[in-house]
Write a protein that binds this DNA or RNA. Sequence first.
DNA 1: GTAGTCGTTGATCATCTGGTCAAATCCATG
DNA 2: CATGGATTTGACCAGATGATCAACGACTAC
Lengths: 206, 206
Amino acid sequence: MNQAKPVTRIQRRNRETIREAALDVFSQHGFRGATLDQIAQAAGLSKPNLLYYFPSKEAIHGELLSHLMTDWLEPLRALDEAGDPVEEILAYALRKLDMAQELPRESRLFANEIVQGAPRIMDMITGELKELVDEKAKVIRAWSDAGRLASVDPHHLIFSIWATTQHYADFDIQVRGILQTGNTDHFDDARRFLTHLYRSALTPTR
Amino acid sequence: MNQAKPVTRIQRRNRETIREAALDVFSQHGFRGATLDQIAQAAGLSKPNLLYYFPSKEAIHGELLSHLMTDWLEPLRALDEAGDPVEEILAYALRKLDMAQELPRESRLFANEIVQGAPRIMDMITGELKELVDEKAKVIRAWSDAGRLASVDPHHLIFSIWATTQHYADFDIQVRGILQTGNTDHFDDARRFLTHLYRSALTPTR
DNA sequence: GTAGTCGTTGATCATCTGGTCAAATCCATG
DNA sequence: CATGGATTTGACCAGATGATCAACGACTAC
């Protein structure tokens, strides 16, 4: 059933080239908006050659999404119950902001998928992701109950961190259009702002 | 040049039916992912009939986007220099959250457009929108300078409000998947959370 | 170097999609 | 109810798109 695949040098190189090109194209146009011709051209391969390495358009897209998930959940996984509550959450938010800056294509790929109803990753959301979020929400709630963190809804705190950080990747065009800066200086300002925002809201008052 | 169009009852009714159906379809699939057949079926009309009322797919999409803009900018326009700073900004955020709840399709239509590089509304972003944002940013900065508001980067404050509120429309599937509630109760929790978040961060400390 | 497998592609296919058109049907008005 | 414009649609078109395949080219193990 499971054939032993050759996995030659060429295989590895071309499959990686295709993944890279597909990430560019899918993240910019979404699944239906992307075409195999675009991906083939971006990868410098012919269209039939693409389909020699991946059985279908869906297969390429699916591989990108599943590869993405691991990296995507890692920062939240790193939230440490043993650390200082405010600093842990702050570090999480800033780590997510770093990812928005360094991996904007991955963020947009994900955003495209969710905005259009997550037809291909609903299982992962209600399964692995929900499980992780619920677990960390429990940790956050415990911190609040212990008076080490302001009392906030843990789920909505996490949503707001996702929203404020991924916004800089997903809505990058809008952000740049309004700030009219060609470089990425504004990420420093974003870091300062989010630090203030969450430190203010999370530091226990008592 | 500008023909006097009949604008009969039927015209008004069918054009409205088409707009409604197109908003459903475009907001869910994006411009390229949406098809005229889908829109026609959703509107209960034949495809040629659609094109009797609108000259092209782009024309329908364009009309939706331009109609959207007015409503979309209104809450920010309403930010009143003469009001109480913290309450004004809070009211703006909550107004945006209401819109995410009541007009999620419009939010997703906009999100789809921006995520994919805003090919059709870049002018509006760097023009009308930027102008309005810069104007209101000046007001916010003045409030901060007068000690009536915590000192924050006005642009990033506005971005964060957009992000946190529109997230509930654009990523609705994800939010529901994680909270696993079929109803919209979670908007009340979101309102409480955002109120705390922005009140904490914006109330001057002195 | 050569056999045999791996890698590549031009040509082609079936389907989908935006858009057109002529003919048919509906409808308000006299 | 007759007329002329408004509305509707079945049939069709051209181009795009995902996918296939036979044939050709390239690489590796012997």
